[in-house]
Design a binder for these strands. Structure first.
Lengths: 332, 332
DNA sequence: GAGATTTGCGAAATCGGTTACCCAACGATA
DNA sequence: TATCGTTGGGTAACCGATTTCGCAAATCTC
């Protein structure tokens, strides 16, 4: 079917070895210019395309990188979308193709990819052993510098959000954590950041947890509704993500209150959803696009240097202030 | 590094051929049960994983399918996201991995994928020739049945939206087409559908075109703003997509008018954005998830049967009515 | 003009599978 | 006992590249 180097070799009366050398621009081989041009011309004319599968078999490099997330919904959701948008062109510019999967095993198995970007960690206990010997990079919201991990500090991100609200004069600030399972001594960075910021300011700790549910908007709506029914002097909400925040805004409006005049709402991740809500949602910006770009870059160098471990990077979060936050106004 | 069939063969004192036969469950080979079990046990014990690259080289099948869209932004945007979410698990269930790319050439080249799902057509003139001999399936908003194409009818979708508004009693309905380049006799289905529906009802044809801009929200906002400045008795807007619709809602609100009391707004594609807007956006639902699932299915059978052309499918659109549409109210 | 070097390029192994073809051993049949 | 079919499994070619090794011819050196 396809044209092979043997076809070219035959047509120019040379061996496949020489054709390969020319087409791979091997500088160590001594190929006279005339020969070089003959081969290149023949290849062009015959429409030669190297069979990448065959090449991968000999070189051991597929030039595929895998991107993994626990669920495809997560991967294509607005948060990770911002990253994929950047990752694929970046990978492409380095000569790699991108394989997406929510099944780690199929990604790892069979030397199909040279390296993997992990966006979330599966609960599968074989997780660690499946990754043994693979080149990978994590993109996570880890707290500190960690090998092979491009991260940002969610403790700090949450603190920025709360700090901003405190600065506006808010006292009763609720942490809307939605579907996180409550634990007394959680390691969850956003929760830690929230608690630290509130406690340092000496304010009352108001947290809102929920059960896991598929519809996060609904989740945010219900939690906020219950909250407004119970306590009625809340002036600000910081949500774990933009979905919850937007659900909360809906509940606040349904309760006859105004955002941001009565209650300020801050989201998290600064996804495209912030542009749709009314009012436009203030949100903590996480540098996931930059993280993705760096991840591809680091992964590519790790692959080509045969390195398995490399230094991590911690990026900065920032607060994107829009219209859903304002100084508190006494409602009573 | 990895365990090969030769390693297994050596350990059980058989040839690699026999090992291959056992592991591929070849029914035409006559392998006694004892031998079979010996091989399987050895493979398990040694942690054997077939090298898929090598397998692909001999069989000519990579079990990769490519998904192409013109830009990665398009691919990860909320519309196609709904599809990818379904496509990857479906592909995986049929034994395929998914390679995403916004570079058709890198997807097509080098026998890296067995088939391709095309979500949009690039302007590259080599488009047609690049696809020659490849197994592919298009997921498009084509009007009619078309080979290798899973589609839905946007003419009809637009007619449903306009018909619904007419039914509510609207007269002055604007088609907000945003960045589509205006042509006198356009083939663009949404425009055709809009015109047909309006003209059949004998109403005035009001269309709104714009120039291509990266920020579609802004696009919708500006177009709607200009529209409200010019004519002031518009009671309904049907947008080309949800972005434009949400931008338009913003402009309507900024003009001191209410959605849907003063102006009804209908979006298109029924993306997740409809859940964020206020009021919740009525939108034409396009069956892109179903289309994706069918596309994978058809592609897989086309691949395994070596067929290049197969019958297309046309799916139904529907209107998802939410809170941004209502009967018109006289404003003057 | 002999030896040393360089130049140009081919032969063959290799990557890890799959598969067509073939053959020895065995039991059944005549 | 000769023939034949079946069973079990090995040999080797093949997929399409890359790369090491090495050799003949050309060129240079003295």
């Amino acid at each position: 079917m396809g044209v092979t180097i043997y076809d070219i070799a035959k047509s120019v009366n040379l061996s496949a070895a020489t054709v390969s050398r020319v087409l791979n621009k091997r500088t160590d081989a001594r190929i006279p210019e005339v020969t070089r041009l003959r081969v290149i011309e023949a290849a062009r004319e015959m429409g030669y395309r190297p069979n990448l599968v065959a090449r991968a078999l000999t070189t051991g490099r597929t030039f595929n990188i895998g991107v993994f997330a626990c669920s495809m919904q997560e991967m294509t959701g607005p948060h990770f979308a911002r990253m994929l948008e950047v990752v694929e062109p970046k990978a492409h510019s380095l000569g790699y193709r991108v394989v997406v999967s929510s099944e780690l095993e199929s990604l790892v198995e069979g030397r199909q990819v040279d390296g993997i970007i992990l966006l979330s960690a599966p609960s599968d206990p074989r997780f660690g052993s499946m990754l043994r010997g693979k080149t990978c990079v994590f993109v996570r919201n880890l707290i500190r510098d960690f090998p092979n991990c491009i991260s940002w500090n969610d403790i700090e991100g949450m603190q920025k959000a709360v700090g901003y609200l405190l600065g506006l004069g808010h006292k009763k600030i609720v942490g809307l954590f939605g579907d996180i399972v409550p634990e007394p001594h959680t390691q969850y960075p956003k929760v830690i950041g929230f608690r630290q910021a509130i406690e340092e300011a000496g304010e009352e700790l108001l947290e809102c947890w929920g059960t896991r549910s598929p519809d996060q908007f609904e989740n945010g709506y219900r939690l906020m509704k219950d909250l407004l029914d119970g306590t009625d002097d809340i002036t600000a909400v910081v949500a774990r993500n933009d979905y919850l925040a937007i659900g909360a805004i809906r509940a606040i409006r349904d309760a006859g209150l105004s955002v941001p005049d009565d209650v300020s709402v801050i989201g998290y991740n600064d996804t495209i959803l912030t542009q749709c809500s009314y009012p436009l949602l203030t949100s903590v910006h996480t540098p996931i696009a930059e993280a993705g770009e760096i991840a591809v870059d680091r992964l590519a160098t790790a692959i080509s240097h045969g390195v398995e471990e490399f230094a991590g990077v911690v990026l900065q979060t920032s607060l994107t202030i829009r219209d859903s936050s304002a100084p508190p106004r006494k409602r009573f």
